[in-house]
């Protein structure tokens, strides 16, 4: 067991029922490759980011969670079901969106999603209704009778999401859902996932190699590297570690950043959210920020005592394992 997992586990029982629970999970392929090495983690409801470089073991973990691979040792429970013996039941309740292209070109989105709804165990009529619902939720209501071959990459990604969503799964496993999307498509896909995880109440696990992206929508993050758990934590739990102040203004972001930096504060800009993160080194920070905004007469929309900038936490951890020590 790594230090990270040991530090993490004691808290598990305090939370609600785990969606995914893996204990000492090890997967060695016949060739001798160890894809997962003594991985222990628990995933709670909400949106969980599964971060790791390519080859870190994300795909292997997903296959094990779906009951498609039998781990060499260790136990896994998904939605309270044992992945070793109850893979079928798990797969009936888990929606999976693969990373790669998996759509036939010559059928309509409705036909395709309806068929896969039936393959998930929905009766004929229900499958049609649920397919229409799923396509509506992903924003393809108007295009549902068009052949998938005529869709843009962004729309195809939405169809892939819709087929995972059809039949109201208890858990969604999304493998690199923003793959191949332009920045705008990426944003709308992420907000869609966020909406599914919050409003729809479906637990979501998003696998990605881009932490900066999924960090925006995740409640929890799990980082794996070389088949081992690097770090698993809820984003909330990081607030105490290094507090930040999020400042959101409608305009003059750059000006504010420059002025605050002049005052000797540590500032970083989050371009995707149009907000500044100011490191809370001491009490005067609040006053400085308030005064600076007042001086500049900027329209302040939000001032939030926020958690640590997660990307930094993970970036250090991902690059060198020894950095873990510092993070814990």
């Amino acid at each position: 067991m790594t230090r990270a997992t040991r530090a993490y586990l004691p808290g598990v029982s305090d939370y609600e029922q785990s969606i995914i629970e893996a204990t000492a999970l090890t997967m060695r392929y016949p060739g001798g490759v160890t894809a997962l090495d003594d991985l222990t983690l628990a995933v709670r409801p909400g949106i969980t980011g599964l971060v790791g470089a390519n080859g870190a073991g994300k795909s292997t973990l997903i296959k094990i969670l779906l009951g498609l691979l039998t781990p060499t040792s260790g136990t896994v429970r998904v939605l309270g079901l044992d992945a070793r013996g109850q893979g079928e039941l798990i797969r009936a309740r888990v929606g999976y969106m693969p990373e790669h292209d998996c759509l036939p070109a010559d059928v309509t989105a409705t036909e395709f999603v309806t068929h896969l709804g039936r393959m998930s165990g929905l009766p004929s009529t229900a499958a049609k209704e649920q397919a229409a619902e799923a396509l509506r939720h992903v924003g393809l209501h108007e295009e549902r009778y068009r052949q998938i071959g005529t869709f843009s990459t962004g729309m195809k990604q939405r169809v892939k999401l819709a087929q995972a969503l059809v039949g109201d799964p208890g858990l969604l496993l999304l493998d690199e859902p923003t793959n191949g999307l332009d920045p705008a498509g990426r944003d709308s896909m992420l907000s869609l996932i966020h909406r599914i995880g919050t409003e729809f109440g479906i637990a979501v696990m998003v696998a990605s190699h881009l932490l900066s992206e999924i960090e925006r929508i995740c409640d929890h993050l799990v980082a794996i590297e070389g088949g081992r758990l690097l770090r698993a934590a809820s984003l909330d739990s990081m607030t105490q570690a290094l507090p930040w102040l999020a400042v959101e203004v409608d305009e003059g972001l750059d000006l504010l950043e420059a002025r605050l930096t002049e005052c000797g504060l540590t500032v970083s800009q989050q371009p995707t959210r149009r907000q500044l993160l100011v490191r809370l080194d001491g009490d005067p920070v609040f006053d400085t920020v308030r005064d600076t905004i007042a001086d500049l007469e900027l329209p302040l929309t939000r001032l939030e005592h926020r958690r640590h900038h997660v990307e930094e936490l993970f970036a250090g951890a991902l690059s060198e394992s020894s950095a873990q020590e510092a993070l814990l």
Binding site: L66, V94, Y96, P98, H100, D101, C102, M119, S120, Q163
Partner: peptide
């Protein structure tokens, strides 16, 4: 069309 993963990630 690589549709098989979608089948095999279902109860089949």
């Amino acid at each position: 069309h690589h549709t098989l993963p979608l089948y095999f990630s279902r109860p089949l």
